[in-house]
Nucleic acid binder design. Structure first.
Length: 483
RNA sequence: GCGCCCAUCGUCUAGCGGUCCAGGACGUCGCCCUUUCACGGCGAAAACACGGGUUCGAUUCCCGUUGGGCGCGCCA
């Protein structure tokens, strides 16, 4: 195989880019990049009723967000309808296709009776050898493939291996609709051929189509591309992915706070493996990817593992990138949290400083944003239930007693820590008895990043003001709302 | 109904006839670290769907059963 690899991702714009489509795109991309080949993008919009402009945008945006780039211009299938028609006509001329005058109602009845009698609901070939002169008036015909009825059709699949069908089990599919528009079957074959696609990598719901398409390639006298049908992704319950579980558009994963790199890593390991390796940089997955190691059974989508991976990639990401990413999410997350669509400079600066401690504890960007609440919370700080229970009378007394010491200490982690530890020793308290009320006063939560780092990020004035607010003393320095 | 595909811990998977009383990861549960929560470290429980073959020997090969999935449109 010394020819240059050309793959394609060919979604139909009838909805957003779902997770299965994203993985198909990823596999095509990896396979092309691996071999130094190209990946083309074709929008299969021949269904004029259901194809929409917003869906096209959503798919393109989704691919860009995921970091999957394609080569050349996007091909719109419907724009090639004339070429498809011409191809169908050529088959008519060569006798490999024929006109069928059966009406939709007629076909429906045909399928109904077949089902009722326990036969496969297929077209019975009633116009295959009938004289078109007998055509009923007023019926616009479709063009059907004159498929071979004897023998078998085999597909050598890169993932599934050799799969064969008896031709008698395949019927004469429609190539051109009565309105003159091509069907999916015709359009894919003609386009893949014209675009010189060498490898068709798609979901295994298309496996049977590969057989029918092979018949069409034969009719044209063209050689078929290599096929690779990858298993589908199922929901956590093993059933087909539906809106109920993971069948969210790729943008939903973005809004849930997942990183593109984490999603790529999660997706590539769903159905594919490389020994015991779990973490793959883009370079590593491109270098290691191969179709032969793709499994043949469907995989269930597992959010827990995605979260774990996301945590890994967040910890590895730079503080700047993380701040930028959560800011990018503000338009969707901000409003419900009393935040605008961008971070005020003060908040941004605090976030940057606090990020090392924050990112260690978050699984998603949403967690990250929420865990940073104390950085911009307006005073007086509201404590959540757990935090409030930490601040009892004894705690209040300790906070009040500790307060003057903090006022005097140099405002850097080690010095603050020494002061707090020294204070705990003196009053005979465990560090936790001082630290937890302190944490609650400063962050409003029972958990947070390292206490002394939090205090430094907040600054002396703000820290003392928050302590005073809980210790029951007059508020000396005003708590400054920053958002 | 017909055709095709699939079947290892709860989940993703390694395994391509003996190295497997089955390995890794996520999750779960302990312990350690520790001002909290995470992170990190250590450890534990947890699987070859079932039945027949083939073979000196099957998780690995074949057949069947069961279970699951996909397809059977003038949708893609």
């Amino acid at each position: 195989m010394s020819d240059r690899i050309v793959t394609r991702f060919a979604p139909s714009p009838t909805g957003f880019l779902h997770i299965g489509g994203a993985r198909t795109a990823l596999f095509n991309w990896l396979y092309a990049r691996r071999t130094g080949g190209t990946m083309l993008l074709r929008i299969e919009d021949t269904d004029r009723e259901r194809s929409t402009e917003p869906a096209i945008e959503a798919i393109l945006d989704g691919l860009r967000w995921l970091g999957l780039d394609w080569d050349g211009d996007v091909v719109f299938q419907y724009a090639r309808a004339a070429r498809h028609r011409e191809a169908a006509e050529s088959l008519l001329a060569s006798g490999r296709a024929y006109r069928c005058f059966a009406t939709p109602q007629e076909l429906e009845e045909m399928r109904d009776t077949a089902r009722r009698e326990g036969r496969a609901p297929r077209y019975d070939g009633r116009w295959r050898d009938r004289d078109p002169a007998e055509a009923p008036a007023g019926v616009k015909p479709v063009i059907r493939l004159r498929a071979r009825q004897e023998g078998e059709t085999a597909v050598e699949d890169g993932v599934q291996g050799r799969v064969t069908w008896q031709n008698k089990d395949l019927d004469d599919l429609v190539l051109l609709r009565s309105d003159g528009n091509p069907t999916y079957m015709l359009a894919v074959v003609v386009d893949d051929h014209d675009m010189a696609i060498t490898d068709v990598i798609r979901g295994d719901d298309h496996l049977t189509n590969a057989a029918r398409q092979t018949q069409i390639y034969d009719a044209f006298g063209w050689s078929a591309p290599r096929f690779a049908h990858i298993p589908l992704i199922h929901g956590p319950d093993g059933a087909k992915l539906s809106k109920r579980h993971g069948a969210l558009g790729i943008e939903a994963y973005r809004d849930l706070g997942y990183l593109p790199a984490a999603l790529r890593n999660y997706l590539v390991r769903l159905g594919w493996s490389h020994g015991d390796q779990e973490i793959f940089s883009d370079e590593e997955m491109v270098a290691a990817f191969d179709l032969g190691s793709v499994g043949r059974s469907a995989a269930r989508f597992d959010f827990a593992k995605l979260e774990n991976l996301n945590g890994h990639y967040m910890r590895a990401a730079s503080d700047e990138e993380l701040v930028d990413r959560i800011e990018g999410l503000l338009p969707v997350l901000g409003p419900s949290r009393g935040l605008g669509t961008t971070f005020p400079a003060v908040v941004r600066a605090r976030l940057l400083v606090a990020m090392p401690g924050l990112k260690e504890r978050a699984k998603t960007l949403v967690d990250l944003l929420d865990s940073a609440y104390y950085l911009w919370a307006p005073g007086p700080l509201a404590l959540d239930a757990k935090a409030a229970s930490l601040v009892d009378d004894a705690a209040r007394d300790r906070l009040a007693a500790l307060r003057p010491r903090l006022d005097a200490v140099a405002w850097e982690p080690a010095a603050i820590e020494a002061a707090v530890r020294g204070f705990a020793d003196e009053v005979g308290a465990k560090l936790g008895q001082v630290a937890q009320p302190l944490r609650a006063s400063l962050t409003g939560r029972a958990t947070s990043p390292g206490l002394f780092d939090v205090m430094v990020v907040l600054g002396r004035d703000e820290s003392l003001a928050r302590i005073d607010a809980q210790a029951g003393r007059p508020v000396i320095a005003a708590s400054q709302p920053v958002a």
